[in-house]
Design a binder for these strands. Structure first.
Lengths: 341, 341
DNA sequence: AAGAATTATGACAGCGCTACCATAAAAGGC
DNA sequence: GCCTTTTATGGTAGCGCTGTCATAATTCTT
């Protein structure tokens, strides 16, 4: 027995058929007007648009996606929203999508590849036009889905590796390496590192390794380090520096995995009466605004988070099809000399 | 002429029909297993799940949404992603949705009700299960859509007004009022205000008005104010305070619309050798971690952003249907005395 | 002016899934 | 044991849109 039309939805929700009827055209013609696709006579377009306005027609994207086997959704999988880094990336993505029909769907992985895989699969159920994720390291299953899917893929932040399709970011290994070189050149010799325990933060690990490499090349090494148990935060940086200096008071510079923790380090120095830079250098990563607004601007590396997000989304929209060639875009980084190291 | 089945999609993408065939059941039974809905014999469920695993079946949500006239998407419309406030809300939403089938789709309105309306309409095309927005102020068209839609609605941050369905937040007017009372009680008399020009930031305006009201009741008033032209930032706070103090050096306390700007104010004081609290009180809003990690913790009001997001998403999931009664949840706020005012 | 190329429109099936019934099988009541 | 209730499964149409082809209307060639 046939189900009554519109039985389980608002009876007054107009469909494309209603628009077409009112405009005196076929459904497919109305559809072409809505999608601005194919040749349409100006008079027809005007009539259809008038009908759309009169009825308050809103296209049903589920039906459109089903019929065309592609959606205007873009899946975005980020490790975290707890500090401003990934919201900055998201902001860049949004900016690039602003005047397009595409909409981002957000997932948060907590730096866990298994959670990433689970969310990825649930996102694929929407047949997204593209998938954006952080980093180049995924589970084998996730990687398989990414490689075989009919959508574009962008892997953000890091470019030290082999991307599925597009990678946009910077070399974190090199950033760590340049941090070491810069600080050695400025005369620092007794290095400390105050990190956090997110072992799966591949980028922080890569910077750490780059730092160690450059120190080694200079005949130096980290003479003390401390890993805060728990998430990165300003408080964590403050506490970590205190612990580090108790263990090894002779340090003349401490490198932090990010600006948040480095700011905490500076706050500890202010509190303990330690003269920053003269007595102890402090170096961060990210180049957050707040660090640069301090009376003594934080010495750090500027990562271009907004640019990474924006560039990635723009690149993804350039072509529907995945090209043969993989694309790697290096957005680079800049050492901000600052006043703290 | 019939289109070839699977003609325009990957021929190897398994559908529910493939799963059903392999499991030896009907499509609808397989569907019930996927959705964990309706009575299914254990043996049948096991067979279907095995078939799903073997084929690597991923449900097509577009088809599901079309057939059921409802989706598992939740539309989230936020004014901005530029400071940590709205990412914190988003984090709360994500936390509440973590173990549910629902996924957030994000839009950014730049505090512009017209942009909000446009994005809302495009989101409604997905027949979302719920819509989350900031504030109670929307365009008439947007309000109409929200009232007539077949989805739940949560309006976040503010509760001073009449919500469509659910409001979760705090009274910003009262927060501003309490700020004034608190500072007067601590002996401050010569008040300055260093704001920003986002006139459409209704919450900041409400706090400002509450502040003015409490000062008036104490026989006082703002004796100087400055509005930074442009977005709020630490740098803006720093510059604004400088300008304010040049215009009116006799101020003994300055209220900022948020912690970011208040931090900038403190940085200006540090730079200019102004003794914070003794010579000039500084008061913010939000209670960000970084302000509390400073040697001199920022005096401010803690807004419960994560809680707001989490509570809203949880409430929305409690019932599919919009109840008769509107719900207003006051998550409250706390004055953090700090050391700066 | 006749044919070729271009532009504009339409008919119709089908995308993959679920709502709506119907029916069959098992369990419970007396 | 017969009837009622509950549990388990299936047939089928249709959700609203767009891809595919076909055709009609217009413009361009030569």
């Amino acid at each position: 027995m046939p189900r009554k039309r519109n039985a389980h939805r608002s009876p007054d929700t107009p469909t494309l058929a209603d628009v077409a009827r009112l405009a005196g055209v076929s459904e497919i013609t109305a559809s072409r007007v809505v999608r601005a696709q194919g040749p349409i006579a100006d008079a027809t377009r005007t009539r259809v648009l008038a009908a759309i306005a009169e009825l308050g027609y809103i296209p049903n994207r589920a039906a459109g996606s089903l019929a065309s086997a592609e959606s205007t959704l873009m899946s975005v999988l980020l490790p975290s929203l707890s500090n401003i880094v990934f919201p900055d990336v998201l902001r860049g993505i949004h900016t690039a999508l602003r005047e397009t029909p595409f909409q981002p769907v957000i997932g948060v992985t907590d730096y866990d590849p298994l959670i990433e895989e689970r969310i990825l699969v649930s996102f694929l159920a929407w047949q997204p036009a593209a998938v954006i994720l952080a980093g180049l390291h995924h589970t084998p299953t996730a990687r398989r889905h990414l490689e075989h899917g009919r959508f574009r893929v962008a892997e953000l932040m890091d470019i030290d590796g082999d991307p599925v399709d597009i990678a946009v970011g910077m070399s974190h290994r090199q950033a760590g390496y340049e941090t070491g070189r810069h600080l050695v050149q400025r005369g620092y010799r007794r290095f400390g590192y105050a990190g956090h325990n997110v072992v799966t933060d591949d980028r922080a690990s890569a910077r750490y390794e780059g730092l160690c490499t450059s120190l080694r090349e200079a005949g130096l090494s980290l003479i003390a380090e401390h890993r805060h148990q728990g998430a990165s935060s300003t408080k964590a940086g403050r506490d970590s520096l205190q612990i580090l200096l108790v263990a090894e008071p002779s340090l003349d510079v401490v490198v932090f995995p990010n600006d948040d923790m480095a700011m905490g380090g500076i706050f500890h120095c202010m509190h303990a009466g330690i003269s920053v830079r003269e007595r102890l250098g402090i170096f961060g990563f990210n180049g957050l605004d707040i660090g640069q607004a301090m009376p003594m601007p934080l010495s750090t590396i500027l990562s271009k988070r907004f640019l990474i997000g924006k560039t990635a989304a723009e690149k993804l929209l350039e072509s529907r099809e995945r090209p043969q060639e993989k694309t790697i875009i290096n957005t680079g980084f800049e050492i901000i000399e600052g006043a703290t190291a």
